[in-house]
Simulated scan of single mutants.
Amino acid sequence: MPGTFSQIYIQIIFAVKGRGSLIYSDWEERLYQYITGIVRGKEQKMIAINGMPDHIHIFIGMKPSCCLSDLVREIKKASNEFINENKLSNFRFSWQEGYGAFSYSHSQIDNVVKYIMNQKQHHRKVSFREEYVDFLKKFEIEHDDKFLFEWVK
């Protein structure tokens, strides 16, 4: 769009259905590359991607013409098919419904990238549930716990 200037940075977080630990380290990099291809194919900028066996963090630079919900739906649908068609998981793979999306300023990019790239170390101390609820509180997002992801007890 000529004459349109923007700076939109969004961290997207979503989980494996049932919070199963189904993303294995031997193929997670292939998954991240595949998702990066989807994001770039939709003309958005991938800044960072990483996760754990049960959830994923994606940090993008987004154009104002992009519909975030459409992008996330496409990422989930296509990556779900990629995992199942390539038989990367020993189990039927599916993402849970819903996602978190959190916006950042340009000055926060480095900190968000470091946070995402250090997921494995971070989750030695903090569970995904604690992390996710902390995001909701930090960003002052009203929520009802019964509508959060399915949590493994």
Rank of each mutant, 00 (worst) to 15 (best):
P2D: 14
F5E: 10
F5N: 06
I8G: 01
I8E: 00
Y9G: 02
I10S: 07
I12V: 13
I13H: 04
I13E: 08
I13P: 01
I13T: 10
K17I: 07
K17F: 08
K17M: 08
G18P: 01
R19Q: 15
S21K: 10
S25E: 15
S25A: 13
W27R: 05
E28C: 07
E29V: 11
E29C: 05
E29L: 12
L31P: 10
Q33V: 03
Y34H: 14
I38W: 03
V39M: 05
R40H: 13
R40E: 15
G41S: 03
K42C: 11
Q44G: 03
M46S: 11
A48L: 04
I49S: 09
I49W: 13
M52A: 06
P53L: 07
P53W: 11
P53Y: 11
P53T: 06
P53E: 15
D54Q: 07
D54V: 00
H55W: 04
H55E: 09
I56Q: 10
I56M: 12
H57N: 11
F59C: 05
S65H: 09
C66D: 01
C66Q: 10
C67H: 14
I75Q: 01
I75V: 09
K77C: 03
N80L: 08
E81L: 15
I83D: 00
N84P: 13
E85Y: 13
E85K: 15
N86R: 13
L88G: 02
R92A: 12
S94M: 11
W95D: 03
Q96P: 00
Q96D: 01
E97F: 00
E97H: 02
G98Y: 05
Y99S: 02
S105F: 09
I109Y: 06
I109P: 03
D110L: 07
D110G: 06
V112E: 04
Y115E: 05
N118A: 05
Q121A: 08
K125D: 15
V126W: 03
S127V: 07
S127D: 13
R129H: 14
R129M: 10
V133D: 02
V133M: 08
F135P: 01
L136E: 13
K138E: 06
E140M: 08
E142M: 11
H143L: 09
D144P: 03
D144K: 10
D144Q: 09
D145H: 14
K146M: 06
L148Y: 08
F149V: 00
E150T: 13
W151E: 15
